[in-house]
């Protein structure tokens, strides 16, 4: 079977998908629906980068229950659209983060949680860490070490607001990338 651009038995999938997207989102104005649905269906991928994972888990625990916002930690990266960088990203983990981020289908969003994910926190001069905003575009930053679960919930609410007011999801689908998220993207390693 030929590997060229989906010439097999199913027609050119990529082209028809793009056409359908154009039709639905630009002409039928489904953008608002998509933004609404994406905002309330942010499924974080199960990638625990570091010890803020404790508070990440607590955010989904009964007392704070982030499933109320429609966010359900999900198993495989292919089926998610949301990533929470939980604390320090080491050089070894950075590669896994990058791979996982690329496995996720767009529209996708990321939150950096904890001081280590912002500017290194207490490990600011460590030789083995990477600032996550160097490798993936981050939407919301949560200070704290570790942040309280409410802060994580606040970040999710903030992201939902951003998606719905700025139309991030529909924009991403139309363009295939996001301009404002590229602000922090400096290439980085990984």
């Amino acid at each position: 079977m030929s590997q060229k651009e989906g010439k097999a038995y199913v027609g050119n999938l990529d082209v028809s998908a793009r056409k359908a997207q154009d039709l639905l989102l630009n002409k039928a104005k489904l953008g608002k629906l998509v933004d609404w649905a994406t905002a309330f269906s942010l499924w974080p991928v199960h990638l625990t980068t570091s010890c803020c994972g404790c508070e990440f888990a607590a955010t989904w625990s009964p007392r704070f229950d982030a499933e109320r916002y429609g966010a359900l930690p999900w198993i495989a990266s292919r089926q998610t659209n949301f990533m929470i960088i939980e604390g320090t990203v080491t050089k070894k983990m950075a590669k896994a983060v990058k791979v996982t981020w690329e496995q996720m289908p767009y529209p996708k969003f990321a939150i950096a949680m904890g001081a280590c994910a912002l500017d290194g926190g207490i490990f600011y001069n460590s030789y083995n860490i990477v600032r996550p905003w160097q490798i993936i575009p981050i939407d919301v930053f949560i200070p704290g070490c570790p942040p309280r679960p409410e802060a994580v919930a606040r970040a999710i609410i903030e992201l939902q607001k951003m998606i719905r007011t700025k139309g991030l999801a529909s924009q991403w689908i139309i363009k295939g990338y996001r301009e404002e998220a590229l602000k922090y993207y400096t290439g980085g390693e990984g």
């Binding site: 997207q21 489904l30 998509v34 649905a37 309330f40 269906s41």
Partner: peptide, 10 residues
């Protein structure tokens, strides 16, 4: 919402 999100994802 989940279904709609899935429907429009890459």
């Amino acid at each position: 919402a989940d279904l709609t999100r899935y429907a429009f994802q890459e």
